[in-house]
Structures are given as C-alpha cells and as structure tokens.
C-alpha cells in the first residue's frame, strides 16, 4: 500500500511537471490547450453506438504520447485508476438498454454493452488526454494559457488547488498508513472498520493541513488568485501549423469514415 502511494506521488509530480522534450514542449501552451479541448469535445460528442470511431480516438493519443516522449503505459495505468467510476456509469446502460444489436461468437451483444464500453473508452481517453496535455505543458504554463484564453480565473485557481490538494492528500494518507503499519504486528489485511477510521482521520488531517497551507500561501502574498508570472506568449508559425495539423487529425477521426 505504502509503495503504491509512493508511486502515485511520484507519478503525480511527474505528470504535473513539464517533462516533454523537443517540439512538444516548445509549442505555445495555448495551441496545446486548444487542441486538447477540441479533441475532448470531438471525442465526447462521438455517438456511443459508433464504437469503432470511439476506439479510434486512442490512436491520436498514442501518437501524441510518442511525440511528447511520454510513457504511454504510465498514462494508461493512471487512466485505469478511474476505470471503476467510469464503468459504474456505463453499468446503467447495460441494465436499461437490452436491445440486441449484434452477435459475437453466438453471444448476443446488447445496445447497453456497446454503450457501456464506449463510455468507458471515452472516460479513459479523456483522462489520458488531460494527463498528456499536463505532461507536455506543465501545470503553470497550462494555467497561464487558460487565463490567456479567457477561461474564468476561478476555474484556473481551482485547477491549481486540486493539484496541491491531491499531493497533500497522498502525503497525509502515506503517513497514516505508515503509522498503521508500524503497529499492525504483521497483519496485511485491515478490517473494514479500520479503513473507515483511516479515511475519517485522513479527512480531519487534510482539513487541518489545508488550513495551515492556506496560511503559508497567504503569508507569501497569495490572495486567492492564480500565482502566475506575467509571461509573454509569442504565437509563432509552428504553433499555427501544430494547431491546424491536429485539428485536421481530429476532423478525420470524427467525421470521415475510414
């Protein structure tokens, strides 16, 4: 458990630092953000019953991961963390959409199953897109680009706060787990009641910690806005090229039947 948390913390830090090299890093963050938003809108608007097209969105993500020199399998790993939540949403479709639309090796495939699979894929691809965008850009340039594109400050500030809160949550959880393990006398599986206590302790600690962090941030001049440098963004030809090339890819996957 503690090793998994350690990995998650490292992953979070890696994911939120601009690690992409070469062209992927040099492109204007606004171009990357516009591409990612268009990609998400186009992907999420793909009809659920068009499963082949939904699955095809995975290809540009793989290509983008390759160009950014991101570890694609880590991306897949992190996106799979959300699988239970996404699958839960899809589950309702399986229950309510029972119309048989195909047969696979003699097994009837209902509309609900296809929709559930499409929802799951869309969820996973959405997470991968967001992670990749952060990986290639870094949290601060990304938030700077959001502000330049006139995305409300409140939303941008929340994005930064979520990032910090996730770290605090993981660090606190790690400490609680260490303290629990130190007194567990070798027991590896904890009863449900203990988990309930751990979670309630985690909530109390994170509230306390959040309060202190808020003080530490205010002590350094934070006033609830987004602490970004007055960065000069220069839009170059390569950014235009990048934008249109990717918009072309998005249009092909979304509208052209291959």
């Amino acid at each position: 458990m503690s090793q998994n948390l350690e990995r998650a913390l490292l992953g979070l830090d890696r994911a939120f630092r601009p690690q992409a090299k070469g062209m992927a890093r040099e492109i204007d963050p606004r171009a990357k953000l516009l591409v990612a938003l268009t990609f998400l809108i186009a992907m999420l608007s793909t009809p659920l019953m068009d499963l082949g097209r939904v699955a095809a969105w995975g290809i540009p993500i793989m290509v983008a991961a390759y160009i950014s020199r991101a570890d694609y399998f880590s991306l897949v790993g992190y996106s799979l963390l959300l699988l239970p939540f996404v699958a839960l949403i899809g589950l309702f479709n399986i229950l309510y959409e029972r119309e048989v639309v195909a047969s696979l090796f003699g097994i009837a495939v209902t509309k609900g199953w296809i929709m559930a699979l499409a929802i799951t894929l869309r969820g996973i691809f959405s997470v991968q897109t967001i992670l990749l965008m952060v990986f290639a850009t870094g949290i601060y340039p990304l938030c700077g680009a959001m502000l330049k594109l006139r995305i409300p400050t409140l939303f941008v500030a929340q994005t930064l706060m979520i990032y910090r809160f996730l770290r605090v949550l993981l660090i606190e959880l790690q400490e609680i787990i260490f303290a629990t393990q130190a007194r567990s006398a070798g027991i590896k599986r904890y009863p449900l009641r203990l988990w309930a206590r751990i979670i309630s302790e985690l909530l109390i600690r994170t509230i306390r910690r959040a309060r202190t962090l808020d003080m530490a941030m205010r002590a350094r001049g934070w006033q609830g806005d987004v602490p970004l440098a007055r960065q000069q963004y220069v839009w170059r030809w390569r950014d235009t090229l990048f934008l249109f090339a990717w918009l072309g890819v998005v249009a092909v996957v979304r509208f052209i039947r291959l």
Binding site: L12, D13, F16, R17, Y140, R164, R167, V168, L213, A216, M217, R220, G221, W222, Q223, P227, L228, A229
Partner: peptide
C-alpha cells in the same frame, strides 16, 4: 507545498 524546490521558492515572487 509545491512539487519542486524551484516552484516553492518561486511561489511568493509569482504572487508579487
């Protein structure tokens, strides 16, 4: 509270 020392030390000047 930031992920790197650089980001942490830059937090105050950024707010300025």
């Amino acid at each position: 509270f930031m992920s790197t020392v650089e980001e942490d030390v830059a937090f105050g000047p950024r707010n300025m």
